[in-house]
Amino acid sequence: MSIVLDVRNLKVYYELGNGVVKAVDNVSFQLYKGEVLGIAGESGSGKSTLGQAIAGLIRPPGRIVGGQILFKGKNLLELSESEWRKIRGKEISVIFQDPNSYLNPVYTVGFQVAEAVEAHNGGSPKHYIHKAIELLKMVRIADAPRRAVNYPFQLSGGMKQRVLTSIAIANKPELIIADEPTSALDVTVQAEVVELLLELKKELGSSMIFITHDLPLLLEIADRIMVMYAGKIVELGSSHHIRNNPLHPYTRGLLESVRYERKAKLKSIPGSIPSLISPPPGCRFAPRCPFAYEKCRKIEPPLKQVDGRLVACHLFNEGGNDG
């Protein structure tokens, strides 16, 4: 399989008055052509910052401190803003959680979709209104010609998310980054929008990074899942591995806390997420980990190949099952 995206030792820090937040701290992974890579994590895990970095959307006080993001061999971190404009929305598209902040309330949705086409093809948005209606049809908006002249406030949340999706796919991107695209939607609406996203991805032959806190959702839709904790990757493996045999204690805890049992106490992870300004030494999960020992509190565990996936945990030895 060919590699579409190769992230190497990426570091994104936020420089705040009271210290430096290491939101993404030395993260490396590859995205293969055609795959859906799920990035799971709780608030403060760095998953959204990572998505923004890949889309070239990090703004002060955020700063990319180190590393490379190779997209089809080209380092995205070396692009100027004008070079970025040619890529963003064309080769790399982003879909965010809240359509209200990304749709302009004073333009019709048809115009906004047409504008997305115009941005990369020149001319005027007016030339692309038929194309826009076609795109609205592609995201299965019923009665698309009539909807195209609606303003965002006239549409439901699910429909607005479809409009954003049509903007994202307008130029057949190779990479779609979806950051919590369905978290604000009801579950029945979510199910439909997610299905649509996956179908479009397949149709266009794109690759997708799907960022969410919803691990059960990722288990259903992602080919591989990357679990992040406090700015680091703790485990990266196939959905099958993560579902049936999670190795990292955090992945296990996360899965157990959503694998609800009837009338039984829920399994929880004690404590809370550490400060990213002064993260604990050694393994960042050690203070909450039931298996932590001396070494975990001193030495940071590297990501190593264990049992067909990558795990950052001292409990496991390279290559083997457990240590």
Partner: peptide, 13 residues
């Protein structure tokens, strides 16, 4: 967050 969710539900139980 899910990891904290369980703690609160257990308190409720």
């Amino acid at each position: 967050d899910v990891s904290v969710r369980a703690q609160v539900l257990n308190v409720l139980i």
